[in-house]
Design a binder for these strands. Structure first.
Length: 136
DNA sequence: GCCAACGTTGGC
DNA sequence: GCCAACGTTGGC
């Protein structure tokens, strides 16, 4: 059962372009239990929005889980989860947080409701809608 | 730079 | 086990 996700990254730490350059990136450093549960629930082939937080404040593209269920290599305790992502496509028109907040049908999405959650789940209907918004 | 939201820590 | 204090995240 495939799911849709949204992962946040501060572009000055790790941006979309960094992921493209690396070809495959490890999503590590998550130290929040809700986010960890989401990481653990990811399966190979699941798609995720890539969101730039703090700067940009927009969904810049789509990436795909290439390796699921690994341990966070930056975590010595072995408690935290990670996955690997590959870039799928960059949006021609990034979808901004402003647009998302202005869209009533997205008022309940985790990005809006749980603004501090760095790995969020996206419902299929929300996924479709945001993809449409990115078509411009 | 400020502040709200949330998580964690530690005293009781 | 509760809750105040504190730290961090992230939008504005």
């Amino acid at each position: 059962m495939a799911n849709y996700w949204l992962v946040k990254s501060e572009p000055f730490k790790y941006s979309w372009d960094d992921l493209v350059e690396e070809v495959e990136g490890v999503w590590d450093g998550v130290r929040n239990h809700t986010a960890k549960l989401n990481l653990r629930a990811m399966e190979v082939g699941d798609q995720s929005f890539f969101y730039h937080s703090r700067e940009g404040l927009e969904i810049v593209g789509i990436c795909e889980v290439s390796v699921a269920g690994i341990l966070d290599p930056t975590d010595e305790t072995g408690k935290w989860a990670a996955v690997k992502f590959k870039p799928v496509r960059k949006f021609d028109n990034p979808v901004t947080l402003k647009q998302i907040k202005a869209e009533p049908r997205l008022a309940e999405c985790e990005l809006v409701r749980l603004s501090r959650l760095s790995v969020a789940k996206i419902r299929p209907d929300e996924w479709e809608l945001i993809c449409e918004m990115a078509e411009g």
